[in-house]
Write a protein that binds this DNA or RNA. Structure first.
Lengths: 214, 214, 214, 214
DNA sequence: TATGAATGAGTCTTCATTCAT
DNA sequence: GATGAATGAAGACTCATTCAT
């Protein structure tokens, strides 16, 4: 006799994995919609059209599910960031930095709503970081690595002055864009989705170019 | 003739205000230690060595206490920031920016752990901002105003190039320092408390000077 | 495949409904025993030999449970009243009125202890009435409708003088019997349960007959 | 050194008794305005402009104050009822019964809001009755005695048929009027305050006259 | 005796987790 | 494995009562 299967997901191969993904996906949706404080196991189950208890067949507990959902989503966002990151040498410095800033803002706009609620739970933050680094063997967190990589390559190509530390430039770029997302997620989302350059981005890039130009 | 007094606080003038401060102080401590989610009215009462109900003799609500604690602390930190902010024209650009970055880091190191937990509660964030702006009539948030003021003055004095937007520079400075505090409060605290310039700060300033030099 | 079941109720079909009834029954008992003010969610749970939280699996609220308990019980009592009400024309006036008074007393003896405690909570009274009228489409409250109906029919049959307003007679009958229940539930219960006519009832009927005789 | 005196009441002889009366009066007001469930010791103290604790210098506890307030008020209402009760033989039967019904309605309109909330507290009801009967040595409750007295005298005067039991007539009058007050306090108040006879009262009296006429 | 803050048991309610079916 | 009702430990908050002043 085959094990029972959740009704929402029809018959499919690897039902267990499918249900796991389904729960994660629902959790991501609810998390970005109502935040961590509004997330209950019941709301997840109801939204997933699944019994209250299923969660515990696939995750150790609610925290495990939450961290799994976040780490997967952040992983995806990080991956997309890496892909859409400008290629070193493919454009002049201003164009490259502009693309970088736009991508950073986009990432922030999508990632911050998810993570915001977590900041009140130091234990979960810790666990989340551990997971992200476990999957990825790099010591540096998401994005950071790519930004550093880009800047470093540009410096080697001579587009960036040797007098600047790429870590410092990265800190400025990431800091300004992520904090912008925190302070006003809507504006960040708008700025990163528009094709047209928004003025804030342009001003930021102007300063950065001055700083980095050889 | 006078009402009873809480045992923790011995005899002192203005007992009521003293207890209010005591509760606020305890709340600040617990908040930065265990986050907002770990903060219960009972834990506050126990830590304050006071009965469960006292809280409601001095605050409308648990939320009211939390916001009061945060707004008071942030107000103090903001005030200190304003005082210790470098004076425009009193030193060369590098020294001024260095002092600015150091103070920003210090502020971040102390403020972020407190505020972090609030990000999951938009209503409290809103209330907190309202209170901060009620005391202070400026529209701009704490720090931001001072940083902008400093940069603007330096630009008028000719120490900053007219080609850069001070808002963009401010965004870079504040972003890098605050996000640094979020990511590694310990390092930020160390960097800002050490008399000796820490390397991270120096590198950051180097980049900023290049960007701003006329 | 099927969820757990409360221990108090053994195995039975439609466990959910059974537990709901169990809670309602316990609430009715406690309500008439100790009044509304003595009714706590804990006392209900303990008396029902059930966990504190179950209540909220079957009712929105404590108030919801209370109103459900009362409306169900009153509905039942009203139905029984309607059935045992004397039929117009089936007996002479004295016999009819006697039966009416006896039934009214019986109803009062059972209903008043339950409803009494609610009088301090106008909101619950309102909700209770709404529920009773939702089930029943009549605008008039329980009993009243049946008493009026009986008197009206008797008047049409000529057993009641055309000079009396049936509403006034109904007010006298219902008032005297219900207030009697309020003042002395035990006596009312005794009077209505005895087969033998009790003197109070007989005297009441004598007066009513004099008033109504054509 | 003279004992401390509450500020609200200036210096007056028998300060203690004055304060006691003040508290009772405030309690009566709040009770009829917001019911027993909305009555807290704090609200009484605030309304009385007196410290939270004074209550316990004059009453055993909150229940004692409530029962004292109610028993005094009911005593007053009963006294007024007795005074405004029609005098036997001073008018014809219809006029006398009309006056009686009007007064009963008035009493109900004023008394019921006060007592309503108490019905959920059997213990307080019991205590209240005990106090009313302690002051008054009659076994019969307020009003009842007067109604019975009036009817009995009228019967002796030959205005009431000897065939009716005055107790039964009293039960009908009191029942109909008090239950009316319970069901619709506003209407009862209106009916009793208007000089003009309201139709409900007239119909009621018509029936009663038919019943009692010799 | 008045004051009114302190007390803390008790209230309703939520919700992560378990477990019999 | 899926179900979803049962569980019960918290949680925030209220309020009658006490008591040092």
């Amino acid at each position: 006799m085959a094990p029972r299967r959740a009704r929402v997901l029809g018959e499919q191969p690897d039902h267990a994995e499918a249900l796991r993904r389904h729960l994660i996906s629902v959790t991501q949706r609810l998390l970005s919609a109502h935040g961590l404080s509004g997330l209950t196991t019941r709301s997840i189950a109801r939204e997933a059209q699944v019994a209250d208890g299923v969660l515990y067949n696939h995750f150790a507990d609610k925290d495990d599910l939450v961290v799994s959902a976040l780490s997967e989503r952040l992983g995806d966002l990080g991956e997309r960031f890496a892909q859409e990151c400008p290629r070193p040498g493919a454009q002049d410095l201003r164009a490259g930095l502009t693309a970088l800033v736009v991508q950073c803002r986009r990432f922030g706009a999508e990632a911050f709503p998810l993570v915001a609620g977590l900041l009140g739970r130091p234990d979960l933050v810790h666990e989340l970081f551990a997971r992200l680094h476990a999957t990825d063997d790099a010591a540096a967190p998401i994005i950071w690595r790519d930004v550093l990589g880009f800047l470093d390559a540009e410096q080697r190509l001579g587009a960036l002055s040797d007098e600047v530390q790429v870590e410092a430039v990265a800190a400025l770029i990431v800091g300004a864009t992520q904090l912008g997302a925190l302070r006003d997620p809507a504006a960040a989302a708008a700025a990163s989705s528009d094709r047209d350059e928004d003025p804030g981005t342009a001003d930021l890039v102007t300063v950065l170019v001055r700083a980095c130009h050889p």
